[in-house]
Amino acid sequence: MSMDCLVVDDSGVVRKVARRILEKHGFSVREAADGALALQAVEQAMPRLVLLDRNMPVMDGIEFLKNLRARYGSSEPTVVMCTTEAAQERILEGLEAGADEYVMKPFDEAILVDKLTMVGVLQA
């Protein structure tokens, strides 16, 4: 059974790159271009993993994350933030909002797989 991953990013290029990597590792991928659309996608079905950008129109990643955790608790889904925002205080903000891991863009397959292994979504 493939694992469901929701890729949330306003860049179609990033979503495409993430999809390619994730599908290669057995995920079925859904996409959302902002936080509001991502919340709708979660309402339809709870994904195993959310790969989450920070800066997006309509609803940004932090607001989505706060909403997600407030509605569904902190245990699921696993959320990996994937963003260009690499300042220490920004990362801490993401963790406080409920992110499990953090990938700084630009990323590659090795880094993403490494991070997904750290959070136990992929096996070592």
Partner: peptide, 18 residues
Amino acid sequence: QFEVQRGLPVRALMKHFK
């Protein structure tokens, strides 16, 4: 940035690096 992403959990990065 690239190096700290290889194998280092983000919480360890926050705790032990500046």
